[in-house]
Design a binder for these strands. Structure first.
Lengths: 197, 197
DNA sequence: TTATTATGTCAACGCGTGTTGACGAAGCGC
DNA sequence: GCGCTTCGTCAACACGCGTTGACATAATAA
């Protein structure tokens, strides 16, 4: 599926990184439960046993995959730009048509597609709170900031699920502009007022 | 977990129905992949082998569980009432706190929580299209009716996922009114204009 | 060189899953 | 009573999963 990396034999650091990269790709496209260690290892050009050996288990691998060693998603964004930025995250994430996500939003896809799965839910919930909910809520102010951020996350999750599981909202070139506008209005509605109690 | 039904021995129709009821409850709460035939059968007070025997496999059981032998979700709804109706579906579905869903929206929960899962995705996509997307789109008119209905489905899925996987938006009594208002505005934004190209 | 460590390979385990076939037992017509 | 069909029970299978330990081989030091 991915071209196996060669000429990297007997290099622990590079092997570890190859496994991590392959895991990120697969977790982002298929979700934690729907991919096996053998596939991840296979695309990394590595023996499946090494995954458990290097990372100490599949859950630890996921935990490492969603660690924030990639740039944060909401840095330098002004509150007024949030709707456009959120819509952009959804529209740019599947850059090359259907497959490899842009690296900077790969973490978002991992969270979206591993949300179900009892084994991954705790890790996913924690990472989503830290990487998405908290940054959005920090940009807002007033009562109900968390609730409004939650609604944004719901839209992110819903649109992501619709695309991956239902094949809807594919964002073809011809419709992308209209969809982007609709998503921005949706995020505006979510951010504008929610839980203002 | 559920009180096992007794005094139903040697009654094929009743046994079949008990399995189907248990399957609906479990699929709605845990999703297709996260529940085993042994649990479903156990809560139905039945041997696990009977599930495969009566329904011919787990996928067939899911197919039967989402069949529309329960009342449709969007009957007698006027377009203007759609936002309130959709918000109501999300807020009333977990009636007794956390657990047994109201029967009339159990099918909705099954679809939400089984959306990932490669084995169930085709069945879920088909049922979602028939039970949710098509009815909503039929209530709308003009260009982009399907895209707008898709956005509504995305909100349904997202909010449902957030609740089941992340434990957010729990809709406590004190916040329910505010959340309902926010959801209505969200659905209004989704229905108002989307994909108008 | 040889000895030692680091890295990768292989086969197998234990577990849970959905599924199937053989057997037992209840209902029912004769 | 018997015979036959229907229904339920039990044990086992085959499969895939994550994981582990024993072994082989490359890299490195003595």
């Amino acid at each position: 599926m991915f071209p196996p990396i060669q000429a990297r034999l007997r290099n622990a650091a590079a092997t570890r990184q190859a496994i991590l990269d392959s895991a990120r790709r697969h977790f982002a496209r298929e979700g934690y439960d729907n991919v096996g260690l053998r596939e991840i290892a296979g695309d990394a050009g590595v023996d499946p046993a090494l995954v458990s050996r290097y990372f100490g288990g599949k859950e630890r691998l996921l935990k490492e995959a969603v660690r924030s060693d990639t740039p944060p998603l909401f840095e330098g964004i002004r509150p007024a730009d949030l709707p456009a930025h959120l819509a952009g995250l959804l529209l740019e994430d599947e850059g090359d048509g259907c497959g490899n996500a842009a690296e900077k939003t790969e973490r978002l896809l991992i969270l979206l597609r591993s949300a179900s799965s009892p084994r991954a839910s705790e890790i996913v919930r924690e990472a989503a709170g830290e990487d998405i909910l908290r940054p959005i809520a920090a940009l807002l102010d007033g009562a109900g900031a968390e609730a409004r951020a939650s609604l944004c996350l719901a839209i992110l999750v819903g649109v992501g699920m619709l695309r991956s599981a239902f094949g809807l909202l594919p964002a073809r070139r011809t419709e992308q502009a209209a969809l982007r506008a609709a998503l921005e209005r949706l995020f505006e509605a979510a951010l504008g007022d929610a839980g203002r109690d």
